[in-house]
Design a protein around this nucleic acid. Structure first.
Lengths: 197, 197
DNA sequence: TAAAAGTCTTAAACTACTTCATTTTTTTTC
DNA sequence: GAAAAAAAATGAAGTAGTTTAAGACTTTTA
């Protein structure tokens, strides 16, 4: 059976770690909800309890917190084929500290808490899928935060550009600064310096 | 059946997330290897491929990398009831970038790669255990790295002391500096300032 | 398509933290 | 329990990144 593009994308993603029968695929898809957000709209805001975990099928979103001074700190840019959400809030039913805002018109597939739990009962293989997904996320998270340490902002910028050439052109310099962890002014200086080199 | 202290500890830890029968407990324990390291000895060194993932039953260890300048960056202090190792190296069979060194005489239980994989075949419930363990690690990892951002070194020190009062007294100021991400000299200044307040 | 709003650039003054060098104190070792 | 080694304290000079402010450029909106 031919699936629509977004469903095919998520099935391909899941199939990297576990094999699903046609029946299981259909069952899984039935547990998902389609969500669309326009550029500048919020998928989620701080204070809310996360109702869904998301898989992005199209577009780009930024995940960020505001510190005590109201300055944004972007923890990730999520594009097609990425998973996103606030797992802490989703799991513990606590108010989130995060905002997730679309930087482009975006399409996502969400799974609700009820369906997430149901999923493990109905298709226990998904314990394995998520075990591996979380393990890989943990590995890259640890690597990233350990790699970033002891690099200057300029080095972190060069590294980001090298690693995510497709993302760097889709976001503003200001958002990149909030991700790298510096002020937009200093980001501007770095970019003009690096381009001069 | 009465278990020895270290085995009881790891069973209690696992039992927080999944229920095991007596048979499964014995099976699980049979897959573990006891390891002892004396203070200042290495559990693991950069360049090696991680053969085990560990659970600590006694003592304290520091997990760290060396940057290009040879300066250490400590990513965690692991004490009793913590899990440690280098998951990236363990999973991908790649040479590790980490050193794990005992800061006190320590006792651990290790699981080899072969037994780790066997575990999922023999007791599939462990997919669930590790799914939840990794999910929780990811949550606290994300929280930590997001919380640290935008705090000064002094604030991070106060936070560490509040959060890990039991660890702060077991480690040197120098190691704490390597964890907080500053020089030992600046750490010294911060501590004398905070104590004066 | 004009006005408004947001983003980017540049520059000068400032701060958190580093580096280097020296002395004192604590811990380890035989 | 003395000698050696490591850790901690202190101070002066230097640097990566911040803050503030103002003007130029670009995008959004009506």
């Amino acid at each position: 059976m031919k699936l629509k593009r977004s469903h095919q994308l998520i099935i391909d993603n899941v199939s990297r770690f576990i094999d699903l029968t046609e029946l299981e695929k259909r069952k899984y898809i039935s547990l998902l909800t389609e969500v669309r957000v326009k550029k500048k709209e919020f998928l989620m805001q701080a204070g809310e309890i996360a109702k869904y975990e998301y898989f992005i099928t199209e577009g780009c979103l930024k995940v960020y917190t505001l510190d005590e001074d109201g300055a944004p700190h972007i923890s990730m840019f999520a594009v097609e084929d990425y998973w996103t959400g606030d797992m802490a809030s989703f799991m513990r039913k606590e108010p989130s500290h995060y905002f997730i805002k679309a930087t482009e018109d975006s399409e996502l597939l969400g799974i609700s808490r009820a369906n997430y739990n149901l999923l493990f009962q109905e298709i226990p293989k998904f314990e394995r899928f998520y075990r591996i997904l979380y393990q890989k996320s943990l590995i890259s998270y640890i690597r990233r935060s350990n790699h970033g340490i002891s690099l200057t902002a300029e080095e972190r910028y060069i590294e980001f550009k090298r690693k995510y050439p497709n993302i760097v052109n889709r976001i503003t310099q200001k958002d990149l600064a909030a991700y790298i962890g510096i002020t937009p002014e200093f980001m501007s200086k770095i970019i003009s310096k690096v381009n001069r080199m």
